[in-house]
Computed example of a mutant assay.
Amino acid sequence: MISTVVMTSVAALAAPAAGTLAHRRFRQARNARLIRIDTSNGIDEQGFVRIGGIDQWISIRGEDLDNPVMLEIHGGPGSSHSVYGPRTRSWEKHFTIVRWDMRGTGKTLGRTGADGQGEISFTRLYEDALDVTRYVRNRLGVDRVVLVASSFGSVFGVRLARRHPDLYSAYVGTDQNIHDAGRDDSAHRALLARLHAAGKRKEAAAVEGMGRDARAWTAEQHAAYAKIAATSDPLTFATMKTVVMKSLWFSPLHSLRELGDLAKGMKLSAKLLPETAAFDDWADGTRFDLPFFIFQGDRDVLTPPEHAKRFFDAVQAPVKGFALIDDASHFASFRHPEQFLNLMLTKVRPVVTDGAASVAS
């Protein structure tokens, strides 16, 4: 849901001033050294795997293959997590991290171009996620993996976790996106109040013109709403500049051409937003037969923590836990990777490694 803001910035990065390229190369080289894994039982594997009839990019990294496996489902739609490797390097000491560029996204898109992506729909990507899960289980020889889904990825995540507890040892949602078939318009009202208070009449008129029911919005309106919401909130906008854009620009895994692929993928994947707008997480069910956690930014205006907490309170699960990440908007786990890691180590890892039954508060 934040892909338009990223896409605009990526397009600018892909055509930089000549004087910035040397600094970029220096930082890329430093980040490449930072993410190097050379432990005896570690893994650093990136490449293309045949998933759903096309080659899709998957990365598997960690310092110890005996650690729990964490499969990430990225958001956007189309917003690859592969750029955040240097920021989350410490996670790989405790988990084997699997990152996947979805169909129509990032390196998967760059492999064969838009015409080679096949169908891009929620159902198709959901089936891809199941295939990726099965591939990872077979590749690493594990029965189940920790499913970590963020932002738009959490729309997939809750459905995967609800229907397939046999595949996942726990569900962790961050920037958790809750759909309720349009019943709650508090985020829309809060955005209008913020815009009017700031004297942003043009933006307020645009948001008012969309109406409060996101189920009726076009893909372009979903994108415009997310852009206005992100850029009108100081913390979200600061996070975009200092966390997201720097991670993109200094990624050791991406060439300038591949930054362009990221931008193209976000635009291509935006068609998923109207398709999912009418989803209803409550109607689909609040029972989960696996440990269920939500770690949300305490000041997230895009996926407000109040929405996530209401859903969490209704969830029935063998173990569940909710926590706020301090001083965080959207992209909470990447703004404060050490806070997120601490929650994973204190609340999630004991459950998936020891079967602990204590409920995190």
Rank of each mutant, 00 (worst) to 15 (best):
E72Y: 08
L125W: 09
V145E: 08
P68S: 03
R61K: 10
D143F: 07
G62M: 04
D131C: 07
V142Y: 05
I97C: 11
Q56H: 10
D131N: 10
R99F: 13
G113Q: 09
G78E: 01
H81M: 13
N41E: 15
T88G: 00
R36N: 12
I97R: 07
R87S: 13
D44F: 06
I60K: 05
A149G: 03
I58F: 04
I54W: 01
R111W: 11
G52E: 02
Y135K: 11
F95H: 00
T133C: 13
D66N: 14
R111E: 15
T123R: 14
E92D: 05
R87L: 14
N31G: 01
I60C: 05
S151C: 14
V145M: 10
L140W: 02
H94Q: 12
G118A: 02
S121E: 12
G53A: 06
R103G: 09
R111M: 11
V142R: 11
G47V: 05
T133N: 07
E72H: 08
D101E: 10
G116L: 00
S151T: 05
G76M: 01
E63M: 07
R33W: 10
N31M: 06
Q56I: 10
R33Y: 10
T133S: 13
E127A: 12
Y135S: 10
T39W: 03
T105H: 01
T88I: 15
G75D: 00
G42D: 03
D115R: 11
D44N: 12
G85V: 02
Y126P: 03
P86G: 00
E63T: 01
T133P: 02
Q46P: 06
T133A: 13
V49S: 01
T39M: 08
G52Q: 02
A32G: 03
I120Y: 07
G116W: 00
E119G: 06
I60P: 00
L34D: 10
G78H: 00
G78T: 02
R87D: 15
D101Q: 05
D131P: 00
H81T: 14
H94C: 04
N138K: 15
L71I: 15
W100V: 13
G76P: 01
